[in-house]
Design a binder for these strands. Structure first.
Lengths: 242, 242
DNA sequence: TCAAAAGTGTTTCTGCTACACCCATGC
DNA sequence: GCATGGGTGTAGCAGAAACACTTTTGA
């Protein structure tokens, strides 16, 4: 591709203003789990286009903030959480995906512990937000259905070979919670004994001296993810896989 | 993030021009294999910044072409190839990665059969291009070393669970070529018998009635990748893995 | 005492790894 | 006839899958 116009003043340099500049947004698909169900946070658009429809939270990228920080600030704005797991998903740049003109969207996805998230604002109509089952959302604005789809698929793949499932659970959890989480995201049932054998055998869980209280059945032990142990193992070539 | 200025004319719509617009390039890391060595195509920059240094081919994204088509046209421009494997890698958007100002780069990588590529232009100094061993390039402009690194890593991972290695080989190849390709990219040696057993057992290779000619040893049989067989198997839940 | 989930071992089967020799061809 | 790479089978082992009963607790 050649520049639209040559720059007479600086014949040996390429200037940014020689080229058209598309608009860019950073959007963030926020996932959480409640009652073993994968959920996603959506916002209702307060302005045209697609006013009144549900969308993935996002905002335009300024010139003074990195892409990831832009996504992270969306996350903080909607949930109050500053340090959640965040990963770049894909960049969408097809023509015609925004009726106003050329818009690129750099999509991220994030995993949060729902109990830690601030309640979503329902009063302010301009920023109405709500949690939906990730597998059954209302129709979405723009090409956001495709973005969500890709995010779900990425999560399904990634959760099998990186220990990111823990990001969706409370710090202290019970093995059955972990198993249900995996079953929900992988969309198939797992054998209880084999699951426990495998995950405990990895040595990346800390068994806590604490049990469930007031449950109408034998109380289960709490565990937490042992980040340091995982790092140590990874250095020695250990690969998480489930 | 709130718009820098409110739009009086259209209070209920969000206008693209309300926001600053970064420049965006689409760059394409082109991989090929020669003599079992993974190589990458680089171009020497003819303009400032980084004039005279080697870089990953790329160009600014116009408003009239999709991201992928922009990457694809770079590919065609440098190699003459129109239909190679192309995959989006990552979008780089850190501040300060271009001394001229805010530039985002949507990076792609591509796998091509080197024999099919047009010879690279060495005469025209403004678009000098050359193949380098992917593991030992000269210093690169911008943050392109990081981009190349990520591309190599992605290729290493992806080649193990998707049948994309074939994109780097001629249509007709010999099993030893395939094995050498994997050994080169995975950077470890593989057992000949186990490799053959595994790959032939998948049923995604067509054995051709053709053998090497004029080789100073027993002539090896040619094979080709059977795309249809692979698609059929994939539908039934088969997963390529090596 | 009942309902509900926690916790625990063994056997079977599958698939990976390791390994060595004869064959065909050109020079 | 020699150098070079092509082509082949088997035994051992590790890890995955299948599978059922006893324990603890609150109501």
């Amino acid at each position: 591709m050649t520049p639209p116009k040559a720059s007479a003043a600086t014949p040996n340099a390429e200037r940014l203003t020689d080229y058209p500049q598309p608009s860019v947004t950073a959007d963030c698909v926020m996932f959480a789990v409640e009652s073993s169900e994968l959920q996603v946070l959506l916002v209702r658009r307060g302005v045209e286009p697609y006013k009144g429809e549900w969308a993935i939270p996002g905002g335009f990228v300024g010139v003074e903030m990195s892409l990831e920080d832009t996504a992270r600030s969306k996350l903080r704005e909607k949930t109050g959480i500053a340090d959640a797991y965040l990963e770049q998903l894909y960049t969408f740049g097809d023509l015609g995906r925004d009726p106003r003109g050329r818009v690129l969207t750099v999509a991220y996805f994030s995993l949060i512990r729902k109990p830690e998230a601030a309640p979503v604002s329902t009063s302010d109509a301009a920023s109405e937000a709500a949690w939906f089952p990730a597998a059954a959302t209302p129709a979405l604005a723009f090409d956001h259905a495709r973005i969500l789809d890709m995010a779900r698929q990425r999560l399904r793949n990634k959760i099998r070979y990186e220990p990111i499932g823990f990001e969706l659970l409370p710090e202290k959890f019970v093995l059955t919670d972990l198993q249900r989480l995996y079953e929900g995201i992988l969309e198939r049932e797992l054998d209880k004994r084999n699951f426990r054998k495998k995950i405990l055998g990895m040595g990346i869980l800390k068994a806590l001296d604490e049990k469930q209280q007031n449950v109408p059945h034998r109380a289960a032990r709490f565990y937490s993810f042992d980040q340091e142990a995982y790092e140590r193992l990874k250095e020695r070539g250990f690969l998480f896989e489930l």
